[in-house]
Design a protein around this nucleic acid. Structure first.
Lengths: 110, 110
DNA sequence: CTATTATATGAACAACAATTCATATGAACG
DNA sequence: CGTTCATATGAATTGTTGTTCATATAATAG
C-alpha cells in the first residue's frame, strides 16, 4: 500500500463528529424520495389537508399519511387540526433553502 | 369527501415539472447515506486517493469505490489519475452549500 | 511478459424503506 | 350512543440499495 498518512492526518484534523454526519445524512435521506419531495413542493405554496394532498398527488391517503409522519418526525412539516381535518405546512425556513440549493445543482448545464 | 379544490388549484398553479422534482430527490438521495456523507466530508478538507479514503473510513476499498462512482455520476466529486493512484475531490460549489444548509437544520435546538 | 499495486466492476446477498390493505382513532352531528 | 368523514397506524409485501466477494482493468517496474 502506498503512503498517504499526510492526507489522512489532514482529514482527521478537522474530523466532524460522527453524530452530526449521521444526522445530516438522515435529514437528506428524507428529501431523497420523490413522494416526499412532491409533498414538500406542494406545501411550499400553501398549507393543505391530507385529503387534498393525496388527491393532488393521486396517491393513496395512507401512503401520504405515512410520508407526512416521516416529514413531521424530522420537523420539516407541522400540522394543525381543524375539526376532522388536519392541515400540514412547511415547518422550517431551511426547508426552502435546502431545496433551492439542490435545485441550483441539478439545473446546471449537462 | 370534503371540498378543497381551492387548495389543489393553488398548488397546481405553480406546479413544478415532475422532472425537476425527480432530479432533486435523486440528488438528495445521494446525500442521504452516511458513507457517502463521510466521504464528502473527508474530501471537503483535501483531495484524497481511494486507498486513503478507505483507510480513513476503515471501510472496504470496494465499497468506497462503489460509492465514489455514485458520487461521480451525480457530479459531486471529480477525479484525476496520477499513475496508479486516483485522487478524488469535491466537484461543485453547491456541495458545500447544500451540506451547510442541512447542518443548520439539524443543529437547531430540539 | 510477469508481477505488483491501485482502482473498478459485476453478481449475490442482506438490510431497509415505500406502498398497500385492513383496521383503528378522533371529531362532529343527529 | 351510532354513524360518517378525515386521518393515523400496524402488518405484510415488494422494490430498492449498500456491502461483500471474486475478479477485471490499468499503470508501473523489473
Amino acid at each position: 500500500m502506498h503512503d498517504h498518512s499526510g492526507l489522512i492526518h489532514s482529514a482527521e484534523a478537522h474530523a466532524a463528529d460522527e453524530g452530526a454526519l449521521k444526522k445530516l445524512s438522515a435529514l437528506f435521506k428524507v428529501f431523497g424520495d420523490l413522494t416526499r419531495m412532491r409533498i414538500l413542493y406542494a406545501l411550499s405554496s400553501t398549507e393543505m389537508c391530507v385529503c387534498a394532498i393525496s388527491e393532488y398527488l393521486k396517491m393513496d391517503q395512507s401512503a401520504v399519511s405515512h410520508q407526512l409522519r416521516v416529514l413531521k418526525n424530522h420537523r420539516l412539516v407541522a400540522s394543525r387540526r381543524e375539526g376532522k381535518t388536519v392541515y400540514y405546512r412547511l415547518d422550517d425556513d431551511h426547508v426552502g433553502s435546502i431545496i433551492r440549493q439542490g435545485y441550483e445543482h441539478v439545473s446546471e448545464a449537462e
